[in-house]
Amino acid sequence: MNTKHSRRRGEAVTTTVTALFALIFFLPVLIAVINSFKTNGEILASAIALPGAPTLENYKTVIEASDFPSAFLGSCIVTGGEIVLNLVVSSLAGYALARWKSVWSHVLTLVFLSSMFVPFHTIMIALLSTAKSLGLTGHLWGLILIYCGLQCTIPIFLIKGFVSSVPKELEEAAMIDGCSIAQCFFLVVLPMLKPILATVAVLNALWIWNDYLLPYLILAKPATIPLSQMYFYGQYNQQWNLIMAGFVVSTLPVVIFFLCMQKHVISGIAAGAVKG
């Protein structure tokens, strides 16, 4: 009885402490959301008071002035397109590296692995000139292709690791039945990869959706959400009511995505960190 009592008290204490931290973490978001419903005059008077008469005017202005729908579409195309392309490319490569017993597969593994030490800024300038000479700048598909090259290494390792843990017998049986390697991959292996592919997709979404610098260099126009917010910020400098509405509008989609995919995001981060 006594231990039960003290355990319950312990629970109350940790819950209170955690709630306190949660409040601190959430306060910035709360302040931003509240101010997104105020006029600029109200914010200048006090940035911590509640709005006198909540207005949606800021949201209207942001959505129209920053052309939010097209930035949102741009972000969706880049992220979605990259994920599809990356899944195809890295599952093929990851499978081959796991199953091919040859010196070359070891060499390639090492080359892919070594890229993890290279910061983006080290290749940034040369990459931009390569992209220019290949005619990839200014196009969403060009950005997708470049992302695929830069973001395929961790997915390849995750998939390679996953394939190695799957017994070979199933594939061998399929091959004895007359499957080619390609058929075997698409009909036998790919369906088994589903869980790791979900992880890879979520990781890619998190890497790419909010990325700023590469899209800025390659697209040079406000075609994704972070870019359009940056332009908007420059244009409406100090109009905090609008900037906070922009924050809410651009954060909402990714929060909804997270709430729907929570399980995959959390297991993906743990898996990605172990390999990364």
Partner: peptide, 22 residues
């Protein structure tokens, strides 16, 4: 040959946008 073909797309984009710029 099949494994090489599987590795080709990833290697191509990786070389073009990472190894070469590096």
């Amino acid at each position: 040959a099949a494994y090489l073909a599987f590795l080709l797309p990833a290697t191509a984009v990786f070389v073009a946008f990472f190894v070469f710029p590096f």
